[in-house]
Amino acid sequence: MDPFLTIPFVIQRVKKETSDTVTLEISRPDDRVKTHSPAGSAFSFLPGQFNMLYVLGIGEIPVSISGDPNHPEKLFHTVRKVGAVSIALSLMEKGDRIGIRGPFGNPWPVNKAQGMDLLLMAGGIGLAPIRPVLYQVFPERDRYNRIGLLYGTRAPEDILYESEIKQWRSKFDLEVLVTVDRAAGDWKGNTGVVTTLISKVSFDPDRTLVMICGPEVMMRFSCLELQKKGVKPENIFVSMERNMKCSVGFCGHCQFGPWFVCKDGPIFSYDQVKDWIGKREI
């Protein structure tokens, strides 16, 4: 397969999530053609994988897939405006074209959590690559024990997928705890960093699988806290972020210690990365 083949996709919908974040719904331009991956086979992905999103004349960035792996024909990407390409993507309208390469990277070990408690932790836009995990586990909810979602954002108005989270909570027996860094007086929820939520959620440390996505410092402190509670490092997984450019291990930009995040990750067990994740400028 040619990993550099960019396939044109068309924007179906742009949903404004927060002041700086949108979710793009995209699909192949010709509806009669089933959505295909660059490899030519039907496009499919696993939770935690990413695509390279391309805007003609501007460039290409890696963005995790935030949609439902059981319905890959509707591709969702949640994008925060932080650079030239993400800003261009946030200004897209229905009918606009973007290019897709992917999916790349390894997935969250969702099946490994069967028969266990599943604890999901997200910081900010880190909730985007966690959402496909929920989409995958809900139809087979009885295979998992307790499922908890600990979510931290900067402020109440930065909470992603808010109405959806409310639905999940009642429908799928999902324990959701949200905390914000700062809030006005009318916020009745938690404030503080997401690690403070760990002691508020019930799980069996011996039989819990944790998936964490957020800023590196948040993931590091979460791992340390979970380890203190007795969760084994090999049952804690983090999604690392580096400058992925080629996404196939040729360009060298996304190196993180001995790994290429694009092809060896982005998902790593804490066991693998515990000596690296706290090191400055690695």
Partner: peptide, 20 residues
């Protein structure tokens, strides 16, 4: 630029780049 992700470069210092 090499290690740039949103918010800045991972390896800001000469020390970290030589080490890399």
């Amino acid at each position: 630029d090499f290690s740039y992700i949103h918010g800045g470069s991972i390896r800001k210092t000469a020390k970290s780049r030589y080490r890399q």
